[in-house]
């Protein structure tokens, strides 16, 4: 029986890229179910559209770059990017929003840098930021959860809205702000957070519906930790970083924003902590570096949320820390065995 490799080792572990990606997708399932429960089935349509376009774009790009299709299309990385982007986008996002985003992610943020493993920036976050800046209206138009529970949206209407832009059911309004958005704008109008929290868009500790989604994302994250798909350094560092700065700020100036708990389960915190910041290609690789990276993402997220121009800072925080990764990696090299103290 011919041996595969010229050089030892001739044993191989079971860790594979495809397996990692599949487990990641599995970890997202509970959260996706929660999203469907609170925001309707439109996220499934967006997801399907994103996945199909992502795979098509990847196939075309691979052909253009003279690379073999099979290993790269089956590694699952394009699917993961598409799914993460679909979760981050608002429900009922028009089809062209999704397509533009995912195409930009796959073509510009991934393949033009060299494909799998070569991109310095997280493709899903690059796409999200592009869409946020270019199409602010569509990106900040979220379905209010309260309305939905009274007038549930079925799949065909969702389909129609996404592709046609028109709704046939009896929903009065389809525009609304996210909890983070509401908190930020209301505070800008000099309201007190405790009062803001009474609004129907908020639930028990965070945004209505959002808190459950974040919770299920955290459960998925713990599953990934258990399966050793990701290591604990980045999520823990990010959550601790975020909690610390929000706790300190809240103690000093509680009128600035919501409670630390609010920040932990609102917006993209859990998605960012367990699924986005942990993307191996764009995060730091040394152990100490991962902690610095995670803490940086947490701090920047909070700073942008409270003092920056956007309601949620996860995407920007991740991209900024991606830029700093080579520097972080250089200064957090471990001490090699036998290294003599100079």
């Amino acid at each position: 029986m011919p041996l595969s490799r010229l050089s030892s080792p001739f044993l191989a572990g079971t860790n594979r890229v495809t397996l990692q990606m599949l487990q990641l997708l599995a970890a997202l399932i509970p959260a996706i179910i929660a999203i469907v429960y609170f925001f309707g089935p439109s996220v499934l349509i967006t997801m399907t559209l994103a996945v199909v376009v992502a795979l098509l774009a990847e196939a075309i790009l691979l052909r253009l770059r003279n690379r073999p299709l099979k290993p790269f299309l089956t590694d699952g990385s394009a699917v993961v990017t598409a799914v993460l982007l679909a979760i981050a986008l608002p429900p009922l996002a028009p089809w062209w929003l999704t397509v533009t985003g995912i195409l930009f992610a796959i073509i510009f943020a991934k393949h033009l840098y060299g494909g799998l493993g070569y991109n310095p920036f997280n493709p899903a976050m690059v796409a999200y930021v592009l869409l946020l800046i270019s199409f602010p209206l569509e990106m900040t138009t979220w379905l209010p959860v309260a309305n939905l529970s009274e007038h549930p949206l079925d799949i065909s209407s969702a389909f129609q809205f996404i592709f046609n832009g028109q709704l046939t059911s009896s929903i009065d309004t389809v525009s609304g702000a996210t909890p983070l958005d509401a908190m930020k704008t209301q505070i800008g109008l000099h309201q007190i957070p405790a009062y803001i929290f009474q609004q129907p868009v908020f639930g028990l500790w965070g945004g209505k519906g959002w808190e459950w989604i974040n919770l299920w994302l955290a459960v998925g994250g713990v599953f990934l930790l258990y399966r050793r798909v990701i290591s604990w350094h980045i999520p823990v560092a990010m959550l601790i970083g975020l909690s610390t700065i929000s706790l300190v700020t809240w103690l000093i100036a509680p009128e600035l924003t919501g409670s630390p708990l609010f920040h932990l389960i609102s917006g993209g915190t859990m998605l960012g902590a367990f699924f986005i910041a942990t993307d191996p290609v764009t995060a730091s690789t040394t152990v100490k570096g991962k902690i610095v990276f995670g803490a940086g993402v947490g701090l920047l997220t909070y700073i942008i949320r409270v003092w920056g121009g956007y309601p949620d800072g996860v995407a920007f925080a991740v991209l900024i820390m991606n830029m700093l990764v080579p520097l972080i990696d250089y200064y957090t090299q471990p001490k090699v065995y036998g290294a003599v103290k100079r």
């Binding site: 010229l6 050089s7 770059r65 003279n66 690379r67 073999p68």
Partner: peptide, 15 residues
Amino acid sequence: RWPDPAHIDLKLGDQ
């Protein structure tokens, strides 16, 4: 000298 692995293993088109 050990042969260059980049020539052997990555037969991925014009890599």
